[in-house]
Amino acid sequence: MATSLQRSVTTLDGQDGTPLAVGVRNLRRAFGDHTVIENLDLDVPTGQFVALLGASGCGKSTLLRILADLDTEFSGDVRVASRRAVAFQAPRLLPWKRVWRNVVLGLPGRPDKTHAVAALEEVGLAHRANAWPKTLSGGEAQRASLARALVRDPELMLLDEPFGALDALTRIKAQSLVEQLWQRHNPAILLVTHDVEESLLLADRVLIMKDGVIAHSVDVTLPRPRNVSDPQFVALRAELLTWLGVGDGDGVGDDPHQATPAAGRIPPQDAQESLPKRTIHS
């Protein structure tokens, strides 16, 4: 389906020589007279977890849709990893296919159940492999959608507010699951979100999108798992909120997740054995 993308490009290196999973130059996208993205440049090195923050309507989802090859009405130079997977805010599982068939949908060859179950195992959903999607809870459906992305062994994962529709408790679990999966498989991740705290908990680099361009970039070098009450975390949070034009800098009380206790975050279960030493790209 990727007709608009340049297939000929095999690799692309960033400034520091790291191969890129995403390389965008001079991107422009307009809906009629309304320009959403103007002259946008973006590099995402392989293995980096990037969060894209912005107010609603700033074009962050449009950018993700362009990278997912769902929106082709753009101009500019867009190069993305050929093996990429998308998880949306709604799980978007086919209701007429059992969970495991949804997971392996679109893979070449005959649907392989063991392959699907292995991916579902990773998101803790193997016991629901034979269920109909409509019988899953919101969190389970979202995890199934993550398994569907994961089973493709992507070099780039595009996550479009995947935790947006989840309740607060489920969201915390889902966030740490994504962090865990990223540490284990190490794809590049572009996470579109409007939640400042979420971006700081998960990402290596937080980008703020404003007026159709990347207005600000913050490298987050805090050790993982991160703690929302860490003074450095609080300072970064205030910085980002100021860039977003919210609050006067102290930031307390204008994010519903402020109250989330740091101790409530579930650390990766097998962080010790599977956590690779990560170098933070900058």
């Binding site: 769902l70 949306f88 978007r92 599982l93 086919l94 296919k97 679109g106 893979l107």
Partner: peptide, 21 residues
């Protein structure tokens, strides 16, 4: 249409899209 989009992102061909979605 959101299901059709999701099916496209997992790489279904046009024929697969018709058959599975």
């Amino acid at each position: 249409s959101s299901l059709v989009e999701a099916a496209r992102t997992v790489g279904l061909s046009r024929l697969g899209l018709i058959r599975h979605v």
